[in-house]
């Protein structure tokens, strides 16, 4: 047992070092002076340490951070909730043709976004949402539904149908059963769906830039992209900016990590 424990720790620590290696490269180069970023010194610690990269990046990113937050929170929540409801229906309340609908929903997940930019812009103009954050939120919600539905459906498949049946025997309606029985059990699935949606929407570039042309309303990824120029690039600012832009997402991970709790199914049924 002791050897097993030792192996476990060894594997975890080696994995940790490998995972941190690229992040190490980003951090040490983020703290360099612009002129001293070079491939030859990419592994070395910065000397002298310069905060110019981080301050410059923060100056350029912070105005757009707020836009991103305003956009990402409703988008991620809405698409997760819709996905949970859809997944509930697809796994526990199947009806004739529901598999086909699920297939149609899922297939859309693979649509290459470059190909639909043009009709998307025209449609948003038509419903008067082009150039607004609301239009962007709508876009993210719609393109998020298929994956969140998939996540919840396949998570709910593992939850015994007897729980749902028991609740409906008790006289609870479909929505009430979802609210009272399924929702408390879905926390790990919500963690996964929210992590997925939050990250994807936060890091989306293509929709942000196409749907919202005014830089005042644009999400942070566009500002991040604009840290590099068309010809030469200050890599210290770009590396620093990438770390700064990832921090909100990382905070979300830390918060959601607590939801990965092992389900106590029997307890939930009584509730």
């Amino acid at each position: 047992m002791k050897i097993q424990r030792l192996c476990l720790w060894l594997i975890l620590w080696v994995a940790l070092i490998v995972y941190l290696m690229p992040i190490y490269v980003m951090i040490v180069n983020g703290f360099r002076e612009a002129s001293s970023v070079s491939l030859d010194t990419m592994w070395q610690l910065p000397n002298p340490i310069s905060f110019q990269g981080f301050t410059e990046a923060w100056k350029m990113l912070s105005p757009n951070m707020q836009n991103s937050l305003v956009m990402v929170i409703p988008s991620a929540l809405l698409s997760s909730v819709i996905g949970a409801l859809n997944g509930y229906v697809f796994s526990k309340w199947r009806f004739r043709g529901s598999e086909l609908l699920f297939a149609l929903l899922l297939f859309g997940f693979f649509i290459p976004y470059q190909a639909i930019l043009l009709p998307l812009v025209r449609f948003l103009q038509w419903i008067n949402l082009y150039g607004t954050l609301a239009g962007l939120i709508l876009t993210h919600v719609v393109y998020g539904i298929s994956v969140t539905t998939l996540i919840f459906r396949n998570f709910y498949v593992n939850i015994p149908s007897s729980i749902v049946e028991a609740a409906s025997v008790d006289g609870a309606g479909m929505i009430e059963t979802f609210y009272r029985v399924m929702l408390p059990l879905s926390l790990p699935a919500f963690a996964v769906a929210l992590i997925f949606q939050f990250t994807n929407i936060w890091n989306d570039f293509l929709f942000g830039i196409t749907v919202v042309p005014n830089p005042q309303f644009q999400p942070v990824t566009i500002a991040l992209n604009n840290l590099s120029g068309s010809f030469s690039v200050d890599w210290n600012i770009v590396m620093a900016g990438a770390i700064l832009a990832a921090l909100p997402t990382a905070l979300v991970y830390i918060g959601l990590g607590k939801l990965f709790v092992r389900g106590l199914v029997s307890g939930a049924v009584k509730a």
């Binding site: 470059q114 830039i209 196409t210 042309p213 992209n225």
Partner: peptide
């Protein structure tokens, strides 16, 4: 409104510009 989008030779700017031009919403 300084609507600049980075990317070598306009690689990221082009999709946006073209979509906006064809969509009838030019800068």
């Amino acid at each position: 409104i300084n609507a600049s989008i980075a990317g070598g030779g306009g690689s990221a700017a082009r999709p946006v510009l073209q979509t906006r031009l064809i969509g009838g919403n030019p800068p």
